[in-house]
Simulated scan of single mutants.
Amino acid sequence: MQDDNILKLAYELSETTRNKVDLIEKIMRQTQILALNARIEAARAGVSGAGFGVVAQEISHVSTRINQIAADFRVDVDQYAAQIQEAGTRMSSELRGQRFTDLSRNVVELIDRNLFERSCDVRWWATESALVALAENPEDQDLQSLACSRLATILRSYTVYLDLWVVDQNGKVIAQGRPETYPKALGSDVSSATWFRNAMATRHGDQFAVADIETNPSLDDAPTATYATAIRDKGETHVEPPHV
């Protein structure tokens, strides 16, 4: 990642600079030794070596000054490198935090959109003519077959659902979309289920009921989030719910 590269470059810059400063200091120590030897030889030479002794003295002063500059430079580099690393670490943490925040927000938005779409689905299908007809005539075998066929067609297009049911006023499942997969569902009694009672209590077709995730025996004990709404007379949205 880019922020990790910045930290790596800052560390490498700091190490390279330290190494170069070490090399400069080593050279300057050698220069000081040479200057000292030159001054000794100049002293032995007497008057004829006096000028050379002055040059050796100046070289010693210069090397000392360069050593001081190198030492100061080392301190500055260490300080700036530490600040760069600290800033890079903080930036890396902030960027990661922002990325995680964005990912979390996207996940929440996806979940929220998905749940809203499920509520739209169930309210829309409650107006489907085949389901309305069966709810009005729950004993009609032909209408039951037609409703099951329509539910199966819907399930082939929507992969998020385990099964779709039509339930009569008494809480009996009278149609489903996957009888081969979940044979225990058809004819089962869901009258005690909270989602059924809440769906039957809705006041108009824009309302719906949803249950917390729980295992469903009729769906092979699969964890299930159930959405339900009432199927109203002639599919109208603002009439009393005779069926769900």
Results as ranks from 00 to 15, higher is better:
Met1Pro: 15
Gln2His: 08
Asn5Tyr: 09
Ile6Thr: 10
Leu7Phe: 02
Lys8Ile: 06
Leu9Phe: 08
Tyr11Met: 09
Glu12Arg: 11
Glu12Lys: 14
Ser14Ala: 12
Glu15Gly: 04
Glu15Cys: 10
Glu15Met: 07
Thr16Arg: 06
Thr16Met: 08
Arg18Met: 09
Asn19Gln: 09
Lys20Leu: 06
Lys20Thr: 09
Val21Asp: 02
Gln30Asn: 15
Thr31Tyr: 05
Gln32Cys: 06
Leu36Gln: 07
Ile40His: 11
Glu41Gln: 11
Ala42Met: 02
Ala43Asn: 13
Ala45Lys: 15
Ser48Asn: 11
Gly49Pro: 00
Phe52Cys: 07
Val54Gly: 12
Val54His: 11
Ala56Arg: 01
Gln57Ile: 06
Ser63His: 03
Thr64Ile: 07
Ile66Phe: 08
Phe73Asn: 07
Phe73Gln: 06
Phe73Gly: 11
Arg74Met: 09
Tyr80Trp: 05
Ala81Gln: 04
Ala81Phe: 00
Ala81Leu: 03
Gln83Met: 10
Gly88Ser: 07
Met91Asn: 11
Ser92Lys: 14
Ser93Glu: 15
Leu95Arg: 15
Gly97Phe: 05
Gln98Phe: 13
Phe100Thr: 14
Phe100Lys: 13
Thr101Cys: 13
Val107Thr: 15
Val107Ser: 15
Ile111Leu: 14
Asp112Asn: 15
Asn114Tyr: 13
Glu117Asn: 13
Glu117Pro: 02
Cys120Asp: 11
Cys120Lys: 13
Arg123Gln: 10
Trp124Ala: 11
Trp125Tyr: 12
Ala130Phe: 00
Ala135Asp: 03
Glu136Ala: 12
Gln141Thr: 03
Leu143Gly: 00
Ala147Pro: 00
Ala147Leu: 01
Ser149Asn: 10
Leu155His: 03
Tyr158Leu: 08
Val160Thr: 07
Asp163Tyr: 01
Asp163Ile: 00
Leu164Glu: 01
Asn170Phe: 12
Lys172Arg: 11
Ile174Trp: 01
Gln176Leu: 02
Arg178Pro: 01
Arg178His: 08
Glu180Ser: 15
Thr181Asp: 14
Tyr182Phe: 10
Pro183Val: 05
Gly187Trp: 01
Asp189Ser: 03
Val190Trp: 02
Ser191Trp: 01
Ala193Leu: 12
Thr194Val: 10
Trp195Gln: 06
Arg197Lys: 15
Ala199Asp: 04
Ala199Thr: 06
Ala199Lys: 03
Ala201Ile: 03
Asp206Leu: 06
Phe208Leu: 08
Asp212Arg: 10
Pro223Lys: 04
Thr224Leu: 01
Ala228Tyr: 01
Ile231Trp: 00
Asp233Arg: 07
Glu236Gly: 02
Glu240Arg: 13
Pro241Lys: 03
Pro241Ala: 06
His243Lys: 10
His243Arg: 12
Val244Met: 11
